[in-house]
Design a protein around this nucleic acid. Structure first.
Length: 152
DNA sequence: GCCAACGTTGGC
DNA sequence: GCCAACGTTGGC
């Protein structure tokens, strides 16, 4: 039994194509407690919508899978990293990351506009006004519905 | 514990 | 580039 998630990334920084090229990658740099807590709830095999944000056509670009469960994000205690946080230490790590592996790049992006248009998805955190959360759970119903949009 | 100021996210 | 919404920080 696997769970479903959505993870946002700016394609200029890290895109679904980048994940495809690497096959798998750590999801580092999350510095938001809610998003961190969701990552800590992820289990190996959980499925992930890979969302492209802050780009000309924001939307879901493909899927990935959790391949390593949460472990300390060591970039948080690296002073040379852009993600450095002096309050996080190896003894008491504050930030965590998971590893995800590439599953599929979609033939088309399921756009934010399409998602917002669907009454069935009106409860998604993503489609709510002002929501900036970068990692969020997705229900089975929402997952299935979005796959249906993809195939239309 | 309150809340103003600030920094960031992310759609448009 | 603008700006609304949000999270965090720090003075009191």
């Amino acid at each position: 039994m696997s769970n479903y998630w959505l993870m946002k990334s700016e394609p200029d920084a890290f895109s679904i194509e980048d994940l495809h090229a690497l096959n798998q990658s750590p999801w580092d740099g999350v510095r938001n407690y809610q998003a961190r807590n969701f990552m800590r709830a992820m289990q190996t095999g959980d499925q992930v919508f890979f969302y492209h944000s802050s780009c000309p056509t924001p939307g879901i670009a493909g899927t990935a899978r959790v391949c390593k469960e949460a472990y300390p994000d060591h970039s948080s205690w690296d002073p040379t990293s852009a993600y450095f946080d002096p309050k996080s230490t190896p003894e008491d790590p504050r930030w965590f990351m998971v590893d995800i592996e590439f599953v599929e790049k979609w033939q088309k992006v399921v756009t934010l506009a399409e998602l917002k248009q669907s009454p069935a998805l009106s409860d998604m955190i993503l489609t709510k006004k002002g929501s900036r959360l970068s990692i969020m759970p997705v229900t089975q119903e929402e997952w299935d519905y979005i796959i249906k949009i993809l195939k239309t």
